[in-house]
Amino acid sequence: MSDTFFQEKTREQVLEWLRVKYDKGFRYVVRDCVNDTWLVIYSMKPKRYMDDGCWGYREKDFDNIESMPAEIIRNSDMHEISWNNRSPTDLEKLLKIGVK
């Protein structure tokens, strides 16, 4: 992986990345408890696993044709995306709001 992958991305860079990923079929974004400097995107609604401190697909979702591997991006200034959120953030709604 290139060194740029590990660099912190700004809110504007993340929103642009999310727009591209939304067009490719990703619909949800979350932040894990354990790795809270990374955002994780999913094509299907993920489940929050409290014991592990992370989000993930349910086992039944792995065979679903809409299920794509999760992708990550490093960011810490999008505070509205938090482990404390009860449900994953809907990308369509987030992208409509845009930069605050």
Rank of each mutant, 00 (worst) to 15 (best):
D36K: 07
W55P: 06
D63N: 12
K24H: 15
D61G: 03
R27M: 03
V20T: 12
Y49L: 10
K21H: 08
M50V: 14
I72C: 09
S43F: 10
G25N: 11
K47W: 06
V20F: 10
I73L: 00
G56N: 02
W38H: 05
G25P: 06
D32T: 00
R58C: 10
M44C: 13
G53Y: 03
M44E: 15
G56V: 04
V29N: 02
Y49P: 05
D32F: 00
K60Q: 13
E59W: 11
M50D: 15
R19D: 08
G25S: 10
W38M: 13
R58K: 10
G53P: 05
S43D: 05
V30C: 01
G53S: 03
D23A: 15
A70P: 14
L39E: 01
C54N: 15
Y42G: 02
S43P: 11
P69V: 06
K45F: 01
I41Y: 03
L39F: 01
R74P: 02
D36N: 05
K21S: 04
R19M: 14
C33A: 14
K21L: 09
S76F: 14
I65E: 15
R74M: 07
V40K: 09
R58T: 05
S76N: 11
G53V: 08
F26C: 07
I65G: 11
C33T: 06
R27Y: 12
D51L: 08
V30Y: 01
A70K: 12
W38I: 08
Y42P: 02
D23K: 15
K45A: 05
M44N: 13
P46Y: 02
R74Y: 02
M68E: 14
K24F: 09
Y57Q: 06
T37F: 08
C54Y: 06
D51Q: 10
N35K: 11
M44R: 09
Y49T: 06
Y42Q: 10
T37Y: 09
Y22T: 05
R27E: 11
N35C: 04
K24S: 12
D23M: 09
P46M: 06
N35I: 03
D23S: 12
D61N: 13
N35M: 11
R19F: 04
P69Y: 07
I65A: 14
R31E: 03
P46D: 00
C54R: 03
M44F: 10
P69H: 11
Y49F: 09
I41F: 01
L39S: 00
D23C: 15
N75P: 08
F26H: 05
S76G: 12
S76P: 00
K47M: 05
V40A: 10
D32A: 04
E66C: 08
K24Y: 07
M50Y: 12
D51M: 08
M68Q: 14
P46W: 02
Y22D: 09
I65H: 11
N64H: 15
K47L: 10
I41C: 07
D36Y: 07
S67Y: 11
